[in-house]
Simulated scan of single mutants.
Amino acid sequence: MADTESLLETPLAGLHREIGGRMVGFAGYAMPVQYPAGIIAEHQACRAGAALFDVSHMGQAELRGEGAAAALERVTPAEIQALKPGRQRYALLMNESGGIIDDFMVANLGDRLFLVVNASRKAMDFQEIGAALPAGVSIVPRPDRALLALQGPGAEAMLAPLAEGNVAAMPFMGVLESPVAGVPALITRSGYTGEDGFEIGIPAEGAEKVARALLAAGASPAGLGARDSLRLEAGLPLYGQDIDETTSPVEAALTFSLGKRRRIAWDFRGAERVREELDSGPKRLRVGILPDGRQPARAHTEIALGGSTIGEVTSGGFGPSLNAPVAMGYVARAHAGDGTALELMVRGRAIPARIAPTPFVPHRYKRTAGASA
């Protein structure tokens, strides 16, 4: 584990320590892995009420200039030009061989696009995107900004009194520029827990004021441990574990991110591999896995069937909502059907398991104003 004294810190580092956050190294930053209540309590608080996560380590940037949407489509198969103002989309940054450089969020703010990328990839992402831009379009990193994630069924009720704009009217993937606790903010109705919730981008100097206001409103502080167990139960891949530069969108079960128009034109990086795998099927597929018993299967656990290796676990742990272990991994396509019985080789012992559909816990995104789904 990295020495936290040599790591970068987010604007909320002092607050984390004040309220008992146990700091660890993650993506070059000192981040709270948990607070005194513990990971399971933080996880359950998110599922039942609302949890507050500091995700300021992630990369934020603006894409400015005439034709910014068309320019971004040079490096992603997502439909950016069709993205309406006030809306956000999940997208993949691709390489020429059809692998995933990163996954990211892009929001249309009307006069510019706003990007949020993974912390460990932000320098590479901004370089890759910048190199593909034509004259007149530029990418402007915003390291001066913090980012909070307020997640859970109670998030709307906690945020609404603090926001000047009508956050209750925001649907899933909606975007709103509105002050929160008097601090200018960019609010998106999104997150990575499977729950309804918001991500709140703010100037770094206002981060502690907003965080304290949300904690005072009833949000539970939550760290990296709960964030990981929540996204695993939600069946959401983590870059660097479940997807990387060798993984295609097809085998990663992320084909929903491929725009319909882009599948007609095939004018994006890696299109040849993606088209071939869509037509003929990939060699492997990302699947959900439910081990029998109580023993979790961690990343790199061998997946076997009939004495032969058919794949590997990429993420695994205990699912507090299920009170049972859960995992994700890749298996040969011929064995990827739901319900397929297999074995997980944990510490030299074969643990029975089966392939199961994801998410393990249903998503509760607010698809339309006034209802969660």
Rank of each mutant, 00 (worst) to 15 (best):
V116F: 01
Y365L: 13
M345T: 12
M58N: 14
L285T: 09
Y35V: 08
G319E: 08
R64I: 15
R286A: 10
P357E: 08
G306R: 03
L109Y: 02
L230K: 01
S6K: 10
E343K: 04
I139G: 12
E62D: 14
P143Q: 13
A369Y: 02
L8F: 04
D279G: 05
D3L: 05
P296W: 08
G339D: 03
G339C: 09
D228G: 03
V116Q: 05
S372L: 13
A217S: 04
L230P: 00
P36W: 02
L7K: 05
F126Y: 09
P36G: 05
D125I: 03
S138Y: 00
A213S: 13
S280F: 04
A69Q: 15
E199V: 02
I139T: 06
R349T: 14
I351Y: 02
E343V: 06
S229R: 11
I355G: 00
G14D: 12
G67D: 07
E233V: 06
G235C: 04
R112W: 06
I200K: 08
P153M: 02
I80Y: 14
V361D: 01
G370D: 08
L109F: 10
F26H: 03
D244M: 04
F360D: 12
A271E: 04
A50S: 15
E343D: 15
M105W: 00
G174L: 13
A350D: 15
P249V: 12
R22F: 06
G206T: 10
A163V: 14
G337Q: 12
A350H: 11
E18R: 15
M1R: 01
T76W: 07
A253H: 08
E79T: 13
R354M: 08
T10C: 05
F104M: 05
A45W: 02
A216F: 02
Y239F: 07
I200A: 08
A334I: 06
G165H: 10
A91C: 13
R284Q: 10
I80A: 06
G225D: 05
I303Q: 04
D228E: 07
E195L: 10
E128D: 06
A45D: 07
E208D: 12
R298Q: 14
G99H: 07
R262F: 04
R212F: 07
L63D: 12
L113F: 07
D244F: 01
I40A: 11
A341E: 14
V117M: 09
L224A: 13
G319P: 00
G370K: 10
A71V: 13
Q127R: 14
E156D: 04
L186H: 07
I202V: 15
M23I: 12
I101Y: 13
P179R: 03
I39R: 00
D244N: 15
P11V: 11
F53M: 11
D244R: 01
R298I: 14
P221T: 09
Q295S: 07
G49V: 03
E18S: 14
D111F: 06
P203A: 11
A45L: 03
P171M: 05
G223Y: 12
S229W: 02
M328Q: 10
